[in-house]
């Protein structure tokens, strides 16, 4: 039995004096799993994703990512960990507007200090992989939403992270682009064994995952196979 890639134990999180956002949340993810996280807005799923992404820190509890305890990371160590371990795909794409697709994909590698001779061919290869061979030098505003999200996926894969975190990746897309993006995400998980965690509120998107985690009022109320019962929990 291999080690879990993500282990969250009894995590609490609150902002100021408001009601706690996360209460005693625990979750274990094994390498190669494909999770969908669902829940109404305010249920704590976004905060949970931020903690999984080392963008935010839990008040209490423990989060071990790839064998490394993230509780007391300095900002720079957290940045390195994100760079190495995690690929982010956002709802709003979050590409740098004034840069070409190639530069955007290269950014994590540039942050890691790789020389151009390494990042340039790798960025081209990644863009080829997501079907944007003709768009190396296009800027985000010259690309459709679906194309922008494909650039973002290529960027997320740049450092070959073991985990992809996708926050509503199809939220801003039409149904054609949406199914194209989901096809790519599924293949990352199926063909490359990348652990994939995606947040969505659309049942048909969640249905493509292998495991469903539902949040409500800061707690996990369902964790199991993707079933009708799970969706309505």
């Amino acid at each position: 039995m291999s080690q879990p890639i993500i282990q969250v134990s009894r995590v609490d999180k609150s902002y100021g004096t408001m009601a706690p956002v996360l209460r005693q949340v625990s979750m274990t993810v094994m390498p190669g799993e494909f999770l969908a996280i669902m829940g109404p807005s305010g249920s704590g799923k976004s905060t949970f994703m931020n903690i999984l992404g080392c963008l935010d820190r839990a008040d209490r509890g423990e989060y071990v990512l790839g064998g490394e305890d993230t509780t007391d990371l300095t900002p720079d160590r957290a940045a390195d960990l994100r760079n190495r371990m995690l690929g982010f795909v956002f709802q709003g794409f979050n590409l740098l507007q004034r840069r070409s697709a190639l530069d955007n994909v290269a950014l994590p590698m540039i942050c890691a200090g790789l020389p151009r001779s390494q990042w340039d061919p790798r960025a081209r290869e990644l863009l080829d992989k997501v079907g944007l061979s003709a768009k190396y030098h296009s800027r985000p505003n010259q690309l459709s939403g679906g194309q922008q999200q494909r650039v973002a996926i290529a960027r997320a894969l740049a450092m070959e992270p073991p985990v992809i975190l996708a926050d509503e990746p199809t939220g801003n897309l039409d149904s054609v682009s949406s199914s194209e993006i989901m096809r790519i995400i599924r293949s990352l998980n199926a063909d490359q064994g990348i652990t994939t965690i995606l947040v969505t509120h659309e049942p048909d998107i969640a249905a493509q995952a292998k495991r469903l985690v539902k949040f409500k009022d800061g707690r996990i109320v369902y964790d199991g196979p993707v079933t009708e019962a799970g969706m309505s929990a």
Partner: peptide, 16 residues
């Protein structure tokens, strides 16, 4: 600000 956030998310250090 948003660009800085993206850069930090994908691994830019404070020094960068």
């Amino acid at each position: 600000t948003r660009e800085i956030g993206v850069r930090k998310a994908i691994g830019a250090r404070e020094r960068d």
